[in-house]
Design a protein around this nucleic acid. Structure first.
Lengths: 336, 336
DNA sequence: TTGTGTTATGTAAGCAGTTACATTTTTGCA
DNA sequence: TGCAAAAATGTAACTGCTTACATAACACAA
């Protein structure tokens, strides 16, 4: 069933049918109704490929994300997909893993599928070495690229992010104010977002006059799901003679690792060990006591990112970078 | 840059360029290399829409899932996406929520985008009332439909699932054998999979000669992420005079709710309350003690589902239904 | 009734590929 | 060296839609 069949049955030309299809107002109401009736009657659906060829778009957005099974990223995808759908766009999901080569080839695939825009979910897509960001800049030469929780200063690349530096700074100060001056920053990535958190931590420690050797940091290199391995790392670290009575974790997974560590060492939370996580995902209520975590307004970020993209596609001006501030949600792992 | 430009620069016809593009072997090695070189040189990428129009496929699969932020579904999507990619297919992700109307419209959208197949992730797409499954049957008239953890007996619909009945039966028997005869089945959905688990539970209780009034079931209707609400429901249930010393939870989220309940009631796990979850997702190691859970081999299921789909698309015969058995992974919430 | 300005409709040329069929070139063997 | 079969290449029709431009229909004032 093609536009030709419909035009024949309706006794009009294909141009008229096409006009009805595209909601052009240069069609008389009578003709329009007739055509619509015929379409309905025969269950006609326009061929998306032909349409794409003519309009040079199929209204799809490419979403890239390292690992869609990470709770935080999964949630982001969920929010973004929903907004896109409401705006009449589909999304092609591409889970790339953390390997640059795979990211590049996925990016190329999306471009070759002629998506209207690309969204990079998570800060791990941006590398320190600018050469390694070339694939993003190249992509941005074709379609707008939106970054969630990362920044890249390049044309046609837009960033929406939470102010990780400020919120980690605040969390650290709060913990210090509660009487803990040997705080450990526990993190698992050297991404843009990871670094900003670390900077916030360092700045807060410095501003509270903690000597550098008391502001410890510990890096976890395993899978984000491997809570036992996180706990083990902390145990080893402690056994090596490092003391700390507070942990600022770069995400909630790591914070759960810290809780497990405390359980295994027989430490009481928050008295022996206070913990603050990041992301405020559902994990916070899985543990006992419940986890204090920084809510970085993911839904807000995602909605903003998506509507910015819509604006860009509609030719409106949009700021290159928008930052939202987070909020500490206090629960049982921190002192009053 | 089109196939015409390339053909001109390479001094061959467009047909030859097209043949090179499609890996036809009716091209001399010399010509092929020349064309490839020119393509490389000019950074040519074929237009996906034109290609789609000619070939009537763009090698994309539609994935529908109610909520991609559910850990289990997110994991499934992750596995499926990876396999599809390895087979040269992209996937369009559609998060439908639990509302039938949305499912139907999403399905139509995918069909109109001319996907080569549709994968329904999760058993909530199948309804008891066959009329409500019409949207699936209609879709299957166009493209193969693959179900994960659900069954629908209709042409061109294929199922890959875990044997939930058997594994829940086994889990219940194990718990009974460990000395608990007042077991509560705690569940949150009336889906195909939910019902099969319930059947397994009932059958096991019956086979162990537990009177029906000792085989209790409790339904939770809230969000899958709302652990506190699950705990509260259990507290209320207990306060209403119901006793139980074991819980078989239909998923790990519910099991965490049960753990929280135990914590709040001051019950010790597993002595006062034993718990078995389903899905064996990463949540099992978030809690203390760690959760005994039924591993239903999600990765295996996803791989099988995807490769079946590939077989179908390649014209190979494939069984309509494949079932895999699960395995209980014993951890701290059950007695030795 | 005619002329003019709208509004509605039709014609045909794209869009960028694929592929059946025709034609040319190459290969291998008598 | 000639010839048939096989391999390589080219021509042109086709995929199904959009849209610029041409044309027809209509409304309304002079």
């Amino acid at each position: 069933m093609t536009i030709y069949d419909i035009s024949e049955k309706a006794g009009v030309s294909i141009a008229t049918v096409s006009r009805v299809l595209n909601g052009s107002n240069n069609v008389s109401e009578k003709t329009k109704q007739k055509v619509l009736r015929i379409m309905e009657e025969y269950g006609y659906t326009p061929n998306a490929f032909a349409r794409g060829l003519g309009l040079n778009t199929m209204k799809t957005i490419g979403i890239m994300c390292a690992d869609s099974s990470d709770l935080y990223l999964a949630k982001a995808i969920y929010f973004i997909e929903r907004e896109l759908r409401l705006n009449g766009y589909d999304c092609i999901l591409s889970c790339t893993g953390y390997d640059l080569a795979t990211k590049i080839s996925s990016m190329n695939l999306l471009i070759s599928k002629k998506v209207d825009g690309i969204i990079l979910v998570g800060s791990n897509f941006i590398y320190e070495d600018m050469d390694e960001n070339k694939y993003i800049i190249d992509a941005a030469a074709q379609v707008p690229v939106m970054l969630l929780n990362a920044v890249l200063d390049a044309p046609n690349v837009y960033s929406t992010l939470s102010d990780d530096l400020a919120s980690t700074y605040e969390a650290t100060c709060q913990m210090y104010a509660s009487g803990i001056d040997d705080i450990l920053f526990f993190y698992n990535s050297h991404t843009y977002s990871g670094k900003r958190k670390m900077s916030g931590f360092s700045a807060a420690m410095k501003d509270n006059n903690i000597p550098a050797d008391r502001a410890r940091t510990l890096y976890f290199s395993g899978s984000h799901e491997d809570i036992p391995a996180m706990a083990k790392l902390l145990i080893d670290y402690h056994m090596a003679g490092n003391t700390f009575h507070g942990i600022i974790a770069a995400d909630d997974y790591l914070a759960l690792g810290a809780i497990k560590y405390a359980k295994e060492m027989g430490l009481s939370i928050p008295d022996d060990l206070a913990i603050i996580g990041h992301n405020n995902c559902m994990l916070v209520s899985c543990c006992h006591p419940e986890l204090t975590s920084i809510d970085n307004k993911l839904e807000l970020l995602c909605n903003h990112l998506t509507s910015s993209l819509m604006d860009i596609l509609n030719g409106k001006e949009t700021p290159e970078k928008t930052m939202f501030s987070g909020e500490i949600i206090n629960r049982g792992t921190t002192r009053n």
